[in-house]
């Protein structure tokens, strides 16, 4: 199923990851094989979810894509050219919120605007819109300590989207949210994505979240982290949350769970 373009999209991938491997040397001198022979194509405008047990190298892969971490072997190509870390068209939502405690929520979410030298008035207007969208209206001038963990993570999502990046890398962005908010955020994320058609690389532990959101789900296994399966998700968009109780959806999630194997008790 590799290289299957999303409907109506060009086949040329926006990002091509081929035969990537990565080892970490720990303080104790051991050698951790985090990724082995990982190949993924991200087609422009595609929503790809990555599913895998804890410690299988998902965050490592995301950091390599974000240009934060270096890989040992393999290639990362952006529009056919070697990835050189100089592109600014990426937005990252990390596994933890990483908000700066000395800035207000609004100041935190417009930080990318300031760093990238974009228009601050425009960015601020957009920040207010996005904050309202994720249910943080009225919290613009609060400091991160005054927010719950889930609210902080929602602010971090706004920060990832604020500069309208072409590629959005999200590392378990909804992990800290309660089930209900998480469902709502899934629907909202789909809505945002349908409007903007960004290329999304979305890491999650949740099988149903992956199946609900993605065009394609990649399943990884640990030690060393490799891809064990890729499944195209056929459901039409926009997807309704009721889809998750349909028989087809159930079959897909059962298959994904099976592929995830005994590495982890899939918890939802």
């Amino acid at each position: 199923m590799r290289d299957t373009p999303a409907p109506g999209m060009a086949a040329e991938p926006l990002v091509r990851v081929s035969a990537l491997s990565k080892r970490y040397a720990t303080q104790a001198g051991e050698d951790i094989h985090a990724l082995e022979d990982v190949s993924i194509d991200l087609v422009d405008g595609e929503f790809v979810a990555v599913l895998g047990p804890s410690g299988c190298g998902k965050t490592t892969l995301l950091k390599i894509l974000a240009g934060i971490e270096l890989h040992d072997h393999g290639e990362v190509l952006f529009k056919g050219k070697p990835f050189n870390g100089a592109q600014t068209g990426t937005g990252v939502v990390f596994q933890t919120p990483v908000l700066l405690p000395w800035l207000t929520v609004l100041q935190n979410v417009v930080l990318p605007i300031r760093v990238l030298g974009l228009s601050l008035p425009q960015g601020t207007a957009r920040a207010r819109e996005l904050l309202e969208l994720v249910g943080l209206k009225g919290f613009e001038n609060k400091y991160p300590v005054e927010l719950s963990g889930g609210m902080q993570q929602r602010a971090a999502i706004v920060r990832g989207l604020i500069h309208d990046p072409r590629i959005l890398l999200m590392d378990e962005p909804f992990g800290a949210l309660d089930a209900l908010t998480r469902e709502r955020m899934n629907v909202e994320l789909q809505r945002i994505w349908l409007v903007n058609k960004k290329t999304v690389f979305f890491i999650t532990h949740s099988v149903s979240e992956a199946a609900f959101l993605a065009d394609r789900v990649i399943v990884m296994s640990p030690r060393p982290g490799t891809i064990v399966d890729e499944v195209k998700v056929p459901f039409a968009r926009p997807r309704d949350i009721d889809l998750t109780s349909s028989a087809d959806f159930g079959r897909l999630t059962t298959h994904l769970r099976h592929k995830l194997g005994s590495h982890e008790s899939a918890h939802d």
Binding site: I68, T88, V92, F94
Partner: peptide
């Protein structure tokens, strides 16, 4: 993680220092 957040934005050394 803060430094990585700035690195993902390709922030300059001065920007990372200042922010």
């Amino acid at each position: 993680d803060r430094l990585e957040m700035m690195a993902a934005l390709k922030a300059s050394r001065w920007q990372t220092f200042r922010h």
